[in-house]
Design a protein around this nucleic acid. Structure first.
Lengths: 213, 213, 213, 213
DNA sequence: TATGAATGAGAATTCATTCAT
DNA sequence: GATGAATGAATTCTCATTCAT
């Protein structure tokens, strides 16, 4: 089977087509979910015929998993950049900002993962339980160190991380709801969200001055 | 065509069947999404035949929208109970607790809405822009009042509400991820989450003592 | 899934449809092989729509295997009737006659199995290595006993059985060739074949009088 | 269109490619049948691309028919060598041996023809009714002469030939069944078959001593 | 009410073949 | 000669919905 995918060195054109497909797939999968998406829709969005799409990817499943794989790295980058050498509260604020920027600039990616996790993460469970968990544990240890050193409040670091994921990705995943509640397309919503969240976490994580422990 | 729905007074049995169907539908729609769910699956879970299911509901769409309609009220209840007469911070903490309990006890409902909103909320947009928005605006006004009265920090009340939705529903909607990161089935996760969130919001919303306002 | 097949007690109509499908499937599979056959062709031959056919059988594969399973028993019957109590040569002649009759009256069944075995018997290998082998071994033992008792020639009983299968089924499986060589539709071909085979096996299996050779 | 086939003088390389294709096609067609075989499979087995394969052969059909045509000659060779000048029974025994050797050494060719004839011989009917029939008739006449001269038994010569085809090709065409019944890969099966068949035909065709005709 | 039966409109793939280079 | 790319026509199977009883 002379799939384009099997060539060692994809030509420029191959790469362009592959990109177009993945881009279209991101569009479709992020709004319809895996089952709801159709190859027809992806092929049309990518500007190719369905069989031609299948010339580049063996199956719908493959398009989907390639897309997930490819985006996962970038998706974890903001957390990865949480720096032990930085000032704790500033680091966390920066993390929140980065996540908010991603929700604003890459909402489809956020929704793609949200869809996947919502269905029980059938196709990325190993990644979640492996690399993701390892990364989270590492950063949680860092946060715990900060807590113990009295540089931020003593809070459960895992749940701190979950909360940051939740409040930032919310603006991508629940965009339809945010817009409905705020009124059509409030252009300041990301700024407002940032100001609110910075306030919340700054106050909420400030080291407890005279905790007698 | 004498659809059950059109009968003025549904019999006990009719009501029981309708309940069984909606219960089954909640199961299936919340994990598979609208497109991923099949009438076969719902009918089987409800213990009746597919045509019989369609005797009670005209279409798949109708099962879905009836389910959404019916759950929306209960879904908004926690926010509705935010009480102007209470102590602001205590009220907010209680709201967070109620939402966390719902995420713990009714995760399917949470996922059902998450799915719907993720897809752009095609079937509940009006509800979001109407009743939901009205309720949120009302409670936001209440929170603003609290802020202005110096009883809690001056924060954007809409984004405060969004954040509470996000951090609590996260434990239902992203359950697969939470479990993967914490390790199989951490039974304390809701307690830990509550403790963290109470800390975060208590500190984050505490009225700023000498803010020059 | 309310497949007709799952009902405990098929109704008359179900049975009739099932029969019609299997009959049509026999037609199509026996001439086209598994891969060559299409559900379209079977459905048309059975007089139903394709989805309706799939209401009775879950898949093409299931139609095929049900057909094989069902015919296998009948297919082995002639050998099973080889009787230890009978006169050896008469028994073998009777066996040849029965097999020839089957080739004449049930050529499609013969071709169905021929197709399957020709492709390596992927779907009946276990049956061949199990029940078929057991039956053949049993009858081979009987033939060996006859040989040892000097009632027929001392020949390898397994290969004797193979040869009888081959020469009789040939008239079904290679019918196109037989007709081409003999000229269109020689109505006497089964009679002539029988006469020849009876002669061949009678002479070929006659006990060697003075075993000193 | 400069098809390779149309060039007057194929180059060495062309011939090599053609050979590789036909060799691969034999592999694939003999196990999968015409419909079950794919050009992809043949091209891959031949070590070239699908379009390149189609540069040498106009279509799948052409690969198939060229293969059949080419093998038919060799396939008839054993019968052709039945020699009027030889001793009748020895000639027939030698014929059986040659056919058995072919079944052992060229099983794919045997299965290729078996497949084709099973499907009704749509692509070689003329050959069967023409050259094959002529050859068989010629050899049948020879056998009849031997019978009339009292040198072998009086049997129907066409059915004698059919039977030899059947019993020998059986070991190629029904190999899966033979192996299943005898147990995995009995290396002596061709020898045992030969011994049995020689016995059968020697006894079965021995001239009837005092036939009063 | 309830269900067995049926079906049309997809949906994912497969595959022989063509086209352009 | 050779191949990457493309596609139209199947082909299997799914599923919401309808029909008859």
């Amino acid at each position: 089977m002379a799939r384009a995918a099997s060539s060692a060195r994809p030509t420029r054109n191959q790469r362009a087509k592959t990109e177009a497909i993945l881009e279209a797939a991101l569009d479709v999968f992020s709004t319809q979910g895996f089952r709801g998406a159709t190859l027809d829709a992806i092929a049309e969005a990518a500007g190719l015929s369905k069989p031609n799409l299948l010339y580049y990817f063996a199956s719908k499943e493959e398009v989907y998993t390639r897309l997930l794989d490819r985006l996962l790295e970038a998706w974890l980058e903001p957390l990865r950049r949480l720096d032990a050498a930085g000032e704790p509260l500033a680091e966390i604020r920066a993390y929140i900002r980065r996540k908010l920027e991603m929700a604003r600039d890459y909402p489809r990616e956020s929704r793609l993962f949200a869809n996947e996790v919502l269905q029980g993460a059938p196709r990325i469970r190993e990644t979640l339980a492996g690399p993701l968990r390892a990364l989270v544990d590492e950063k949680a240890a860092l946060i715990r160190d900060w807590s113990r050193a009295g540089r931020i409040a003593r809070v459960d670091p895992h749940h701190l991380i979950f909360s940051i994921w939740a409040v930032t990705q919310h603006y991508a995943d629940f965009d339809a709801q945010v817009r409905a509640v705020l009124g059509r397309d409030d252009p300041a919503r990301f700024q407002d969200a940032e100001r609110f969240l910075v306030h919340l976490y700054t106050g909420g994580l400030a080291p407890t001055p005279l905790a007698g422990d």
